[in-house]
Write a protein that binds this DNA or RNA. Structure first.
Length: 284
DNA sequence: CGCAGGCCCTGGTAGC
DNA sequence: TGCTACCAGGGCCTGC
């Protein structure tokens, strides 16, 4: 599941392998992959053809590639999306959704996505950010990320802590994996009411999320199910450093109690039952 | 407005 | 063996 570190690895790959090149033609092989492009796949292909990719940018889990036309190609990898750079003639992947061919005859850019939660769309490149991303908060790796403002906003919420960490309008880039890791590092329970957080606790959990994501980026991104690979198909290996996520039944690295898995928001949450005690008034 | 919950999607796997 | 049920979960959407 690509979260911020994995998406950043992809962004760097795009910067290296796609930026500066000119699109010759685009093949949209699955309409769902371009569902956010309301004018349809043919329109997307038309407006991308003969356009040069200017740069590769990211906010949270979103990527966008500004074009020399003033549009930007916005991409989200969803659960299982990949952007692969493949030599022409390489056999098509089973879940190939969109193919970009370049005028230089070099490697193609392929959007591959098994579960089709991800997709591509063209939008105006409105200065700093495509319009559809206006609601996405800055992520912790953004130079303009304002920790104290996020801490204050977090403590104004009236919800469970993990819900808030996953809310991309509060802080972006954090998904299920890094939320569980940040909570484990700070010994906080996922159902802690945000309005009861002490300022140092709030500061610690946001800082922990930031630190864990930065560490993952340093190691090439988390990958435990082979669905995530970077722009050239290389897997990361950060899963070996996870302390909570996916560790049910394994001993907590801090206290030895067995990590438990709990249902939360139709997904899983992992925590240490001893280090991360259930709060008196949980907000599930 | 803030917040909660449903839904979308597919391949792998567990269970009968 | 072959079927069904369940699981992974980010983000959009709706309703309260």
């Amino acid at each position: 599941m690509p979260e911020l570190p994995e998406v950043e690895v992809v962004r760097r790959g795009l910067e290296r392998h796609a930026v500066g090149r000119t699109v010759q033609a685009v093949e949209v092989r699955h309409p769902r992959a371009v569902r956010r492009h309301l004018a349809g796949g043919a329109d997307l292909a038309d407006r991308l053809a003969e356009r040069r990719l200017i740069s590769a940018r990211r906010r949270g889990k979103y990527l966008w590639l500004p074009l020399d036309s003033g549009d930007a190609l916005v991409a989200h990898l969803g659960m299982s999306g990949q952007l692969l750079v493949q030599p022409p003639g390489t056999e098509d992947e089973p879940h190939l959704r969109v193919r970009l061919v370049f005028t230089d005859g070099g490697p193609e850019l392929r959007f591959v996505d098994q579960r089709t939660f991800g997709g591509l769309a063209l939008e105006p490149d409105a200065g700093d950010l495509p319009p559809s991303l206006a609601h996405i908060a800055r992520d912790p790796l953004d130079p303009e990320f304002d920790l104290e403002a996020v801490v204050a906003a977090l403590r104004r919420r009236r919800t469970g802590l993990k819900r808030a960490l996953l809310d991309q309008t509060l802080v972006s880039g954090v998904g299920n994996i890094y939320a569980d890791e940040a909570l484990w590092h700070t010994r906080l329970h996922w159902a802690r009411p945000t309005e009861e957080l002490r300022r140092p606790e709030a500061r610690a959990v946001i800082t922990a999320a930031s630190d864990v994501m930065r560490a993952a980026l340093g190691e090439g991104g988390t990958s435990f199910d082979r669905l995530y690979v970077d722009v050239n198909g290389q897997s990361g290996w950060f899963d070996r450093s996870l302390h909570a996520y996916g560790q049910a039944g394994r001993p907590c690295a801090r206290c030895g109690a067995l990590i438990v898995r709990e249902a939360f928001m139709n997904r899983s949450s992992f925590r240490c039952p001893r280090c991360q005690r259930t709060p008196r008034r949980p907000r599930w």
